[in-house]
Design a binder for these strands. Structure first.
Lengths: 229, 229
DNA sequence: GTGGGCCCTTGATCTGCATCAAGGGCCCCT
DNA sequence: AGGGGCCCTTGATGCAGATCAAGGGCCCAC
């Protein structure tokens, strides 16, 4: 039972508040695109086809470097957008995207979307919000990668991930992807998680669920204030 | 002979195209702020006072981490803006700023500026451009720091810096700051530059000027395709 | 049920860059 | 002209995390 365009757009906070006429204009230019698990959606340096809004599934946005190393910038799930920045800024795509699971997106073609933006002030304000989120995210990530050590980065990731009522955090499907997001190898990530378990600040419930036992200690570790592990 | 507000705003590409009424509104809310060389303009985590537009001087935007390590995100010169993102996004400042030399800025107070943004579509579009530039910059920086080694980062910096007709590039006043931008210590930066001189792809003219001899080789090195140095 | 992949873990070793330490150049201030 | 900072350079050493290597669990296809 596939989702329809309007549902997907409404599920995204940046389009949820766009009203009547402008919304219908978006509906008119939008089209649905689907990707099987594992397929590449686009590659770095290509022309940007437009703004993607995820309806279902999961997308990984990442950069690649020489010798095949990858760096995961962002995991994009239902209700989120990607490629907005290149679409609006009018430059080539700065990263790759691939479907982590079977994925359905709405694509708002670049030029038509830019027209819509020119003409609709509310939409414009929404996109600014989206962009400032991105900048904040990137500056934070940058700070993490550059200023913290491995334990610090993992600790901060755990603190920032949204936990349910039991302080349980769900890790991404592949730990390898999380590791590359934190600029670690999966080996180091594995070892680091173990250290945190050993000192008793977290426990592993199963392969993809971790429970935080002491948020306070974890915070100290994240800030590098805790004695070496 | 100090600059006046209108001159400074006009020197900034994001405000140069703002017209009559909206421009005068900006003029009304703007005020001039001055900082002596070496003084802190704001600190991470403070409330954002507003959007700064540099009129003269030079500002360094950087993050700090435990044990005093710094990471330079951006050098901001005349005609550029900083703190726009936090001002508009409405969150706390994600980084610090300091005056590298005596500096004069226009400050557009946050709340008044946001009002202006709400009401002026053209300004809004301009700010989106500014933001997409930032995102692009950060994604690029992120890729550099994470995916390239020391030589690669320095090489790419030299390739991207704007060169004059003799392929000469001016380095920032303090190499230390450049090093921290590239996530290197100044020692490693120094050694890396030397390596590039030794293999003959660049030459040092004086302490702060470097000439690129072979752009092609430099590009290979930046991409990590060149045999180890 | 069983075989083969993929993924994660754990151990052993290697290495790029940081850190520590020392010296030299340049500029400004007296 | 002399002296004291600051900055850059260069050398020696150390370490966090990468890389290499091996084993084990889980899931799916057959």
């Amino acid at each position: 039972m596939p989702l329809n365009v309007a549902e997907i757009l409404h599920s995204c906070r940046f389009f949820a508040e766009v009203q009547d006429q402008a919304f219908h204009r978006l509906l008119r230019i939008a089209r649905i695109v689907k990707f099987d698990k594992g397929t590449r959606i686009f590659c770095e340096n290509q022309e940007c086809p437009g703004v993607y809004v995820v309806g279902s599934g999961l997308v990984r946005v990442f950069k690649t470097g020489g010798s095949g190393k990858e760096h995961t910038l962002h995991m994009v799930g239902p209700g989120d957008t990607f490629a907005e920045v290149a679409a609006i800024g009018g430059f080539r795509l700065p990263a790759n995207a691939e479907a982590v699971s079977d994925t359905e997106c709405v694509l708002l073609p670049r030029d038509l979307f830019r027209q819509a933006l020119e003409e609709d002030h509310q939409l414009c304000l929404q996109m600014i919000t989206s962009f400032s989120y991105w900048v904040q995210h990137l500056v934070g990530l940058m700070g993490d990668v550059v200023l913290r050590d491995a334990v610090g980065r993992v600790a901060r990731y755990l603190l920032n991930g949204e936990a349910d009522e039991n302080d349980t955090i769900e890790l991404p499907s592949l730990k390898r992807h999380l590791a590359s997001h934190l600029n670690l190898t999966s080996e180091t990530f594995s070892r680091t998680l173990r250290k945190l378990v050993d000192v008793g600040v977290i426990e592993e419930l199963d392969g993809s669920h971790v429970r935080v036992i002491t948020r306070e200690k974890l915070r100290l570790i994240a800030e590098g204030l805790s004695p070496k592990l």
